[in-house]
């Protein structure tokens, strides 16, 4: 197992163990689609963010987006626009809002909300097809969101 992956798994395990001072999904406040305040107060790690964006079991953003910076990740999708240059097009607060709940920026968008726990129709227990056995966790933890945002901020056009 690579180090990056180990870190990623560790991150996943933390997803439910909410850190003190973290903004919970239900307490997030959007202004014009953006979230001004960091969800954790801790800076995001762009390397971890890159892993989350490419990993099938985490963000899986590449299922829908092409990201040239992650050229080694195979099978990049085209449902959404390429994320190259996202760091130029959007501010950090806007990107945080997009990752947490893109529907606050693009009404009705196909892009899933990654930091949201309610308002779903027949939500399941992850990918089992079964009803959830406990409260629904967001797809990404607060720190995952911050890491992804930190990575997106590095995507600048040369």
């Amino acid at each position: 197992m690579t180090n990056a992956l180990k870190l990623g798994l560790a991150g996943m395990l933390c997803a439910s163990a909410a850190m003190a001072g973290e903004i919970k999904p239900k307490d997030v406040s959007f202004s014009d689609g953006a979230i001004e305040q960091s969800l954790t107060g801790a800076p995001g790690d762009p390397e971890k963010g890159a892993m989350i964006v490419g990993d099938k079991s985490m963000g899986n953003c590449v299922a829908c987006h092409q990201v040239s910076a992650l050229a080694d990740v195979p099978f990049q999708g085209e449902v959404g626009p390429p994320l190259d240059g996202a760091g130029d097009r959007w501010t950090e607060a806007e990107l945080r809002g997009l990752v947490a709940n893109a529907k606050m920026t693009f009404e009705g968008t196909v892009m899933p909300a990654f930091y949201k726990v309610d308002g779903f129709i027949r939500p399941g227990d992850a990918y089992t097809g079964k009803a959830p056995s406990g409260p629904i966790e967001p797809i990404l933890s607060a720190q995952d969101v911050e890491d992804v945002v930190a990575f997106l901020m590095t995507l600048k056009e040369e």
């Binding site: 099938k56 999708g77 449902v79 899933p112 909300a113 779903f120 129709i121 027949r122 939500p123 629904i136």
Partner: peptide, 28 residues
Amino acid sequence: YTRYGQLELSCANCHEENYGNMIRADHL
């Protein structure tokens, strides 16, 4: 047209709005 699940995706989101596009390794 119902957007089921935590990903909030309907059949139409994939098979009507995005047919012809790749979603990960799959050609929709």
